[in-house]
């Protein structure tokens, strides 16, 4: 009677462990986002992270390796404007300026 229950619990345990290990081994890199002084840009979003554009030292986010897209928010919608590669154990710097109302980016590194 208890055996299926135990087997089920063990299965869930293994699944959780596997998920944790996947997370642990995930290759990550870093994205540094800096708004060039003097420019005012709309709220920026990278994946699930909102970026504090007012921080003078910029924002550093850990991201999964691969292609990342920086977007800005306008009228509740996300508008992608910058695509770049995130490499393992490396940092890529995104300098954000603006042309008119729309942000522009320059990828360094």
């Amino acid at each position: 009677m208890m055996r299926p229950l135990l087997a089920g619990a063990a299965g869930v345990g293994v699944a959780v462990l596997a998920l944790a290990l996947t997370h642990w081994r995930e290759d990550t890199g870093y994205v540094e986002i800096k708004v060039v002084p003097g420019f005012v840009v709309p709220p920026l979003v990278l994946g699930s992270a909102r970026i504090d554009t007012t921080k003078s030292e910029g924002t550093v986010l850990r991201e999964r390796v691969g292609t990342a897209t920086l977007a800005y928010e306008r009228f509740g919608e996300r508008v992608p404007f910058c695509e770049f590669a995130v490499r393992k154990n490396r940092i890529v710097t995104i300098a954000v300026t603006a042309f008119g109302r729309d942000p522009r980016c320059k990828v360094q590194g």
Partner: peptide, 19 residues
Amino acid sequence: IAELRELVSSLLGAVADNG
């Protein structure tokens, strides 16, 4: 350098804004 980068990367990971 690659090993150091790995090390510094783990440090940065802990203090990153989304860390």
